[in-house]
Design a protein around this nucleic acid. Structure first.
Lengths: 202, 202
DNA sequence: CCTATTCACATACGTTCCGTATGCCAATTG
DNA sequence: CAATTGGCATACGGAACGTATGTGAATAGG
């Protein structure tokens, strides 16, 4: 008759995560009142503390969810590229595009690091960088990328540049035009990783 | 006899900024109690609200102070390099070194952006990026750096990579060794900006 | 020199928010 | 059907913030 208990619990968790994600993504983590957004989910802080321990625990869950979505999107978009290098470049530009979205920017690049510390040490949200790292490693094996650079390190640095790129585009008053300029500069930086200078551009 | 009023006021402001800087740089902005750190300066929140409006206003003042110091350090270190390109590279590595300091990392790269938004739009704290932009512009004029990349954009992207580089080093359990790896990868990315001898296009 | 005014800063108060402790009710278990 | 588990709400205490107000010293004016 009544749905099994596990389903109700999962639904409660999902509702809390969704409500928190909405609040964190718009007004920001610090300004989001736990009383408010739990109420908007038809619950109270009691449920929140029961499932996630505290406000930070809920943020972690939100971040894990978004990270999973981002990884899926990156893999899906980049998987249809002719060469592996192109695949990698597409991955990066897709990453920039995602970082343009206010929710992702706010939660993943701003409040997340401020509240939880260095993203590199988040245990549950490294799918994107992991994928980039794998591709760089493969590209090195193929001789496309210079040897001697640590793949994961390069992925992290590129990640930082991507984040800045996205912010620059997002805060521009002409995002369309700015995007071209920023992506061009970004790709130029990536060229530094290529072994042979004579590569075709784009 | 009694010191002029202006001096007392300046001293009060300086004491508040110093106390806030200490608190923000260690326990972080969110955890820093205004009652606590104003008391540690021998004052109360009354003085804070009078001079800075609110907690965010005080953070802005702290950031402006640190930014000035960072710009001075960058200029001083990088000014003794043989070539302009080397000058630029030194500027970047100095930037990374500064970003290794916990106070700078916490205030300038973590809590600052979370509380005040995109650093690129801070009116009072862009000295470092401004200097890097100038050098990139000059390097382009000399034909050392590829044409077609927007200098300020490149400076921002490099800035983002620098921040990630610093965090990676700082959070390593062997900072000494990690530093070599990270700086090597970082310089490799910078190579992407160099105009290569054998390639002519655009 | 004396009064009036300004203003830097402190104090007092109300509100909001967080974390914990406790209570209740439905669903499972035997 | 009784017992127990546990998911979630309610109640309470404390801390932090912002505002409104008070006070005393320094300046200004006559």
């Amino acid at each position: 008759m009544h749905r099994p208990r596990k389903e109700m619990i999962a639904e409660t968790r999902a509702k809390l995560i969704a409500a928190a994600r909405q609040a964190f993504g718009t007004i920001g983590y610090a300004e989001a009142s736990m009383d408010d957004f739990t109420a908007s989910a038809g619950l109270t802080r009691g449920a929140l503390y029961h499932h996630f321990g505290d406000k930070k625990g809920l943020l972690e869950a939100v971040i894990a969810e978004i990270d999973g979505e981002m990884a899926a999107r990156v893999n899906e978009v980049a998987s249809r590229a002719p060469t592996r290098w192109q695949h990698f470049v597409d991955e990066c530009t897709t990453y920039i595009e995602m970082a343009l979205e206010p929710e992702i920017q706010r939660i993943m690049f701003r409040d997340g690091p401020a509240v939880l510390g260095d993203p590199a040490q988040w245990s549950n949200a490294n799918a994107c960088v992991g994928s980039m790292t794998d591709h760089l490693t493969a590209l090195q094996g193929e001789g496309v990328v210079v040897p001697g650079v640590d793949p994961e390190t390069a992925a992290r640095l590129i990640n930082g540049a991507s984040s800045q790129a996205a912010q620059r585009i997002a805060n521009s008053n002409d995002p369309e035009a700015t995007s071209k300029i920023v992506v061009a500069a970004f790709k130029q930086l990536l060229e530094g990783l290529l072994r042979k200078p004579g590569s075709q551009q784009n």
